[in-house]
Simulated scan of single mutants.
Amino acid sequence: MPILRSYYQEVYRSPVVQLDGYSGRHGLDSSILAYLDFGGATGTSKDGLAETMLAFATERGTLQPGMPVIEASSGSFAAALAVSCATTGHPCILIVPNNLPPDRRKLLQSLGAHLIASSNNSRRAMDRVAADTAKRYGGYYTHYFSNDDNPEYHRRVTGPQILKHAGDNFDAIVIGVGSGGTITGVAEYVKAWNSMVRIVAVEPAECAAISGGFLGQHGISGIGPGFVPENYNPYVVDTVLTVTTDDAERAAREVLFFDGIPACTSAGATLAAAVQLMNMGKAKRPLCVFAGRRTYL
């Protein structure tokens, strides 16, 4: 193997794996495929996304050397952004909820982020604080729920990688919806090559904003923000499925036991949705995008 100039080169080369064990466990006629998009430092798909969004902004000249980077987030993108800022020499300022658990606060701070707690935890209020903070410190607000650099990354990287590794060996792609960037970018790229591929959006049954259901608390980290993000393009989505937190966690455990893949709960949600899809007769060989891994040590 060649010597890489950057670890991010490896992050972008996510493999596609055939899940024979999990598929056999559920008595499926063919095996589900999984695109393992979690090779980065924080163990989620957000590592490559954060690094590339900063690169896009730098290319445009909107992000100058040493300029602070601001985001309203405390989740997986926040952690990935903090790492990317550290490696590129940008201060990272995160607007976080005022009820953020202490352990999460310490983790983000350990990655080099400066935290500002919002007195109002609504998405709109936190966005306002982030925009004001960027103006006050002369910083760049990534705004990844609404910034087209998010789906553009998936148009350029995730979509092409899926086709490169899986070819035409799938008839549906199943993706959990968080910021909306993955499903929009992948769908727009893949459908340009094959409009017959079914695109399936997955959200928590307990917080079903896309399908117009109940909005409540859930335990599937990374998806189900409780609103429909601006980056979400409904015109390229063919089916929306909901999965309960319990079913997502069960699927994540099963794919670990039967295929040795340390899937996070949102990855488990895509698996549970893929089984639904096959049982409904709407796909024969779906591919799930696994956006994160779980650490068991």
Rank of each mutant, 00 (worst) to 15 (best):
C264R: 08
P229T: 06
D259P: 01
T265Y: 07
T265C: 11
V197F: 13
G260I: 08
I210D: 03
H218Q: 07
C207E: 00
P262G: 13
M196R: 15
G260V: 09
A272S: 14
C264Q: 13
I220G: 01
V237I: 14
I220D: 00
A201F: 09
P225Q: 08
A263G: 10
G212Y: 01
G219K: 07
T270K: 06
C207V: 01
G213P: 02
A269C: 09
P204W: 08
A251H: 07
G219Y: 01
E206G: 00
A251D: 06
A208Q: 10
E206D: 06
A208R: 11
G219R: 05
V237M: 07
P262V: 13
V228T: 14
V228N: 05
Y232D: 07
E203M: 03
F214K: 15
E203T: 00
P262H: 12
N233V: 10
Y189E: 11
R250E: 13
G224T: 00
G219P: 07
Q217L: 14
E206P: 02
S211F: 01
N231I: 02
T265R: 05
L256W: 11
S266D: 10
E206M: 02
V197K: 05
V255H: 06
P262W: 11
L215K: 10
E203I: 00
E254H: 12
G260M: 09
E203G: 01
I261F: 08
L241V: 09
A209E: 08
E206Y: 04
V228S: 04
E203H: 03
D246K: 13
G213D: 06
A209K: 09
C207S: 13
G219V: 09
V190N: 01
I210L: 14
T245D: 02
N231A: 13
E230V: 14
G226P: 04
D238G: 09
V202A: 09
A205E: 14
E203P: 00
G219Q: 10
P229Y: 04
C207L: 06
V243N: 04
I199W: 12
S195A: 15
N231V: 03
I220E: 00
T244V: 07
F227E: 11
R253M: 13
A269P: 00
G224C: 03
V255I: 14
Y235K: 15
A272D: 03
V236Q: 12
S266W: 07
V197W: 13
P204K: 01
C207K: 00
K191D: 08
S195W: 05
F227Q: 11
A252K: 00
N233W: 12
A208W: 05
M196P: 00
V197R: 07
S221P: 01
V255C: 09
D247W: 00
R198V: 13
I261D: 02
V237E: 06
V237K: 05
S195R: 15
K191W: 13
G260T: 10
W193V: 14
E230A: 15
A248M: 05
T239A: 03
A201I: 01
I220N: 00
A209S: 15
L215D: 02
G213T: 10
L256I: 12
G212W: 01
G219H: 06
F227I: 13
V197I: 15
A205H: 10
P229W: 04
V200L: 03
G212S: 10
G226N: 04
V202H: 09
G226H: 07
L271T: 05
A208S: 15
E206V: 00
